[in-house]
Design a binder for these strands. Sequence first.
DNA 1: CCTTTCATGTAATGGGTTACATGATTCG
DNA 2: CGAATCATGTAACCCATTACATGAAAGG
Lengths: 186, 186
Amino acid sequence: MSLRESTASNLGFAILGLLARGAATGYDLAQRLERPVGYFWAARHSQIYPELARLAGAGLVAYDEEAGRGPRTTKRYRITPAGQVALADWVASEFEPQPVRDLEVLRLWSIWTVTPETARKVVQVARARHGELLARYQAELAEVESDPDSGDPRHPLFASRITLEGGLRTRRAALEWCDWMLTQWE
Amino acid sequence: MSLRESTASNLGFAILGLLARGAATGYDLAQRLERPVGYFWAARHSQIYPELARLAGAGLVAYDEEAGRGPRTTKRYRITPAGQVALADWVASEFEPQPVRDLEVLRLWSIWTVTPETARKVVQVARARHGELLARYQAELAEVESDPDSGDPRHPLFASRITLEGGLRTRRAALEWCDWMLTQWE
DNA sequence: CCTTTCATGTAATGGGTTACATGATTCG
DNA sequence: CGAATCATGTAACCCATTACATGAAAGG
């Protein structure tokens, strides 16, 4: 665990993390970086394709070309041994906490400028959103837990399980916070 | 509460939120956007000065010039009535949840690639960081709560109090999550 | 036949960090 | 007298979003 110069960006490690779980096309990666992984790290395809090219240039990923359906060939990427080392290294590396940017809290921080009635509406909308996410996480966690591999610390599903558990706990705390806030306008 | 075209960026509303609590120089704003406000919205002075110029151009803030200490004049900014309206409007406006980017969770999501011993170390470091933040939030909350104005929904300290309370709850949940995780490698 | 999905890229723009640049006052 | 603080700005670069662009196969 030491401070290190990275060969890949944060997005690069998100992609390596996906490829460590299985080979995929840029298109596949873009979809997973919208939905399951996107809960904590989102990205669009326009960002993913150039990053894949960089990772390939650094030898952290490699690809086979299949004759594609569109105008270009389809590239199926996989992580290389060097990529696996880089990923594991990065997981264990120390890094100082990055600057946070939470739009919901920023909004609440100025909520004293509106009437209590408006304020309560804002909190209720936020509460509903947290509730939706909580339900989604719970459903996904149930699915992951149904697989016995999710108990094995060296299996990807183990990591899926603990990150989902974290999301769940965070959302539950946020819901309780919203309920508490609603009691604060007398 | 309707979807609206904003006159200011998110950073702009962070600045308006600060100025709504009192006049300040760009330098003052930069400091508060590092420490207390930086817990949920951080920014550097190189971003703040141009944004202040934009806000002034849009008539949302105004400034008085004092003969400054350095090579340039010191500008003390205050929010205008139009700025107050824009801020309150924005607080009540709907906006779809922005893409999340949480480096800590991204890292844990690939933790299955390292040995259980290394993994536990990673979680312990994260746990310590959450503990530190919790302590800081608790101290700040105690200070805010000592002021009776923090109970008045139309006073800025009310909003400081509820956002700190949220930070506290989130950190507490994160700590419990870390403790739970540590039980997961048998 | 039309829409969705698969599949890949590039260009323009905006947001944010790091580094460059200047200089007076205050504190040790 | 040197370092920290007050105080303001600009420039280069990186990261991310939106929009532009193309085209085949599959499904309704």
